[in-house]
Design a protein around this nucleic acid. Structure first.
Lengths: 208, 208
DNA sequence: TGGCTTTTTTACCATTTGGTCAAGTTACGA
DNA sequence: TCGTAACTTGACCAAATGGTAAAAAAGCCA
C-alpha cells in the first residue's frame, strides 16, 4: 500500500468510506449551497453530516476538496439534458423538451443549481478548466446542431448560443431566486405556471 | 448633541463625511459583489477604499451596516426601469424598452446585479422586508397593467408575473454569469448579440 | 481471541477577522 | 491663532475557523 490516505483514489473504498463520503457530500451540498464557500464552515458541515470535524478531514483533505468534488460531480448531471437533445428528433419538440427538463432540474435539484450559480457569480475560481474543456465544446456542438435546424428552415432563425443562455437563465432562475419568488408568489405553485409560460415563450420564438 | 456617532442620521454630514462614506460604499460594492458578504473582509474594503479599518468603523457601525446600506441604495436604481414603464404608451414597445433598459443595467452595473443576486441566492437574509414592501407592490401593479393590455388584446395573452421574471432572468444573467460567458464567448461582444436576441424573443412572444 | 488496519475522537494550534480603545492628528470657527 | 470638535490611527482583543497530532476505539480476518 503506497498511500495510506483514503482521500486518494482507486484502492476500492470500503463500505464505511462510501457511506461517510456520501454523508459528507450531502451535508456539504446543503451547507455550501446555502451559505457559499466562504460562508460555510467545516463545523456546520460536520454537524449536518453527523460526524466530527476531524473525521471529515479524514475523508477529504480540506474544505476546498469537498467543494471541488461537489462541483465536478455536478457538471455531469447538469449538462445531461443538453446532451440528451436528439439531433434526429423534431427540432421544436426537442428544444421544448430541453426547456422542460431544465426546469424540472430546478425543481429537483435547487441546491445544485445554487451551488453552481454561486461559483459562477464569484468568478468561477474553481471551475475555469471545466468550463473550457467540458461546457464550451458541448455548447459549440449544440450551437452547430441548432444552426443546422435553422438552415433547414425547421425552426425560426435564432442565435443558438443566446437561445441556450436564455434557457439556462429562465429555468435556473426558479431555483436560484427562489427566496424572492417565495415572497412574490406566496403559496402559489410557481413551477406550474413557469412551465406553461416557458412553453409558450419558446414555442413562439422557435416556430418558423 | 445626543449622539456622537456619525453613523447616525440627519445632523447634516460634513464634506469629509460625504467623501469618505462614498469611498467606503464604492469599495464595499466592489468587494462584496466579488466575494459575497462572508467572503469579503473589512480589511479588503479598507484597502480598496484607501482608509484604515478603524476609520471605516468610524463611519459605519459594522460590516453588516455597510452591506445593508448598499442593498437599500440598490433597490431604487434597480426597480427604476420597471417604474418607467408608461401605462399610456404602446404596450409592445414599452415592454421591449423595459427589456433593453434592464439589459443596459447589466452592462452598466454588473457589480450591483451580482450583489443583489448573491443576496437572493443566500435566502435574502437582509432583504426580506424590502422585497415584501417595495418589490411586491410594484410587481402587482405592473402585473395588473400588463393584464389590462392583454384584456384589450394589445399584446398576446401571457402570464404577466412570469413574463417579468423571465425578463429579470434573461437580462441579469449577462451580468451575474459573466465569468461563464467570458469563457464561452471569448472576445465577442456578448451584449450586442443579447440585445438583438432578446428583442426577437419578446417581440415574438408578445406580438398579438 | 489476537493482532492488524481502518476509523473516530480529544485536545490543540495558528491564523484570520470583526471590532474596540485611547491616544494622536487635522480641520475649522471664534 | 487658539481651542474644540471632527477625524484618523496603532495597538489590541476575543471569537471563529481551518487544520493537525496522537491516542483511543472499532472493524475485520486468520
Amino acid at each position: 500500500m503506497q498511500d495510506s490516505s483514503p482521500a486518494a483514489e482507486t484502492p476500492k473504498p470500503s463500505r464505511i468510506q462510501r457511506r461517510n463520503r456520501k454523508r459528507i457530500l450531502d451535508a456539504a451540498l446543503e451547507v455550501f449551497s446555502q451559505y457559499g464557500f466562504r460562508g460555510a464552515t467545516l463545523d456546520q458541515i460536520a454537524t449536518e453530516a453527523g460526524l466530527s470535524k476531524p473525521n471529515i478531514l479524514y475523508y477529504f483533505s480540506g474544505k476546498e476538496e469537498i467543494h471541488v468534488t461537489l462541483l465536478n460531480a455536478l457538471m455531469d448531471t447538469w449538462l445531461d439534458p443538453l446532451r440528451k437533445i436528439d439531433p434526429e428528433g423534431d427540432p421544436l419538440e426537442e428544444l421544448l423538451q430541453y426547456v422542460h427538463r431544465k426546469l424540472e432540474m430546478s425543481r429537483e435539484f435547487p441546491r445544485e443549481s445554487r451551488l453552481f450559480a454561486n461559483e459562477i457569480i464569484h468568478g468561477a475560481p474553481r471551475m475555469g478548466p471545466d468550463l473550457e474543456t467540458v461546457l464550451k465544446p458541448l455548447l459549440e456542438q449544440s450551437a452547430t446542431m441548432i444552426d443546422g435546424w435553422v438552415a433547414e428552415g425547421r425552426i425560426a432563425p435564432v442565435d443558438p448560443r443566446h437561445l441556450i443562455f436564455s434557457i439556462w437563465a429562465t429555468t435556473q432562475h426558479y431555483a436560484d431566486f427562489d427566496a424572492q419568488l417565495q415572497v412574490l408568489m406566496e403559496g402559489q405553485d410557481v413551477l406550474e405556471g413557469a412551465s406553461a409560460y416557458l412553453d409558450t415563450l419558446y414555442r413562439r420564438l422557435l416556430t418558423p
